[in-house]
Computed example of a mutant assay.
Amino acid sequence: MARLTILVALVALAIGVSEIDSSADTMKDLTSGFLKVLDECKKELNLPDDIINDFYHYWKEDYSLLKRDTGCAIVCMSKKLELIDTSGKIHHGNAEDFAVKHGAADDVATKLVAILHECENTHDAIEDLCMKALEIAKCFRTNIHQLNWAPKMDVIITEVLTDV
């Protein structure tokens, strides 16, 4: 369940890239939509305020995601956005719809869900849902960087914080 949640969360972070030139804006919209439920999850899970640091630095390839709390936040946000199904797997339809709603072309949304699904399968053996979410998040980030679709997180975080 956690891996699907994580994958869906990551899909939400990266889903809207139809062209490299417009990827930053699309990814910004997707990530902003996903992060809007972070505060709710922080309160619900009693997470520390500094959890935002992992999301701020998420797209930096050399940044290590090591905090279990970050994985738990990803799982929580994915559940709230209905990006995972009752078995904890990525809900492909909802994840694709989320991506399209936030500016992704249909084919891009499908590709992002496929990447998440592949990452989910790669880390299937991890039993701790929060840690599994972290590993899926790292896998997803690597794949998105390989496609040159990674957004600039400082722009995303600034916009999200402005909306709060």
Rank of each mutant, 00 (worst) to 15 (best):
A2Q: 04
A2I: 01
L4N: 06
L7K: 06
A9L: 09
A9H: 15
A9T: 13
L10D: 13
L10G: 15
V11P: 00
V11N: 08
V11M: 05
A14N: 14
A14M: 10
I15H: 11
G16W: 04
G16E: 10
G16L: 02
I20G: 00
D21C: 04
S22P: 00
T26M: 03
D29I: 08
L30S: 13
L30A: 12
S32K: 15
F34E: 08
F34A: 13
L35G: 05
L35A: 05
L35S: 05
K36F: 01
V37I: 06
V37Q: 03
D39G: 04
E40V: 12
K42H: 02
K43Y: 02
K43L: 04
E44R: 15
L45M: 11
L45S: 02
L45R: 14
L45G: 04
L47T: 08
D49P: 06
N53R: 13
F55N: 01
Y58F: 15
K60T: 09
E61K: 15
Y63L: 03
S64D: 12
S64E: 14
L65S: 06
L66N: 14
K67P: 00
K67D: 07
D69Q: 12
T70G: 01
G71P: 01
A73G: 02
I74Q: 07
C76W: 07
M77I: 12
S78F: 03
S78Y: 04
K79H: 05
L83Q: 07
L83H: 05
D85S: 02
G88W: 04
I90R: 02
G93K: 14
E96D: 06
F98R: 03
V100I: 15
A104I: 02
D107L: 05
D107H: 09
A109T: 10
T110G: 00
T110I: 02
L112S: 13
L112P: 00
L112Q: 13
A114H: 14
I115N: 07
H117Y: 04
H117F: 01
N121T: 10
T122N: 09
H123Q: 10
D124I: 12
A125W: 11
I126V: 14
I126D: 03
L129C: 05
L134N: 15
E135D: 11
I136D: 09
A137T: 12
R141A: 07
T142I: 12
I144T: 14
I144N: 09
L147S: 09
W149G: 12
A150D: 13
P151C: 02
K152Q: 08
K152G: 01
M153T: 13
D154C: 08
E159H: 08
V160H: 07
V160L: 09
V160E: 05
L161D: 12
T162A: 09
D163R: 14
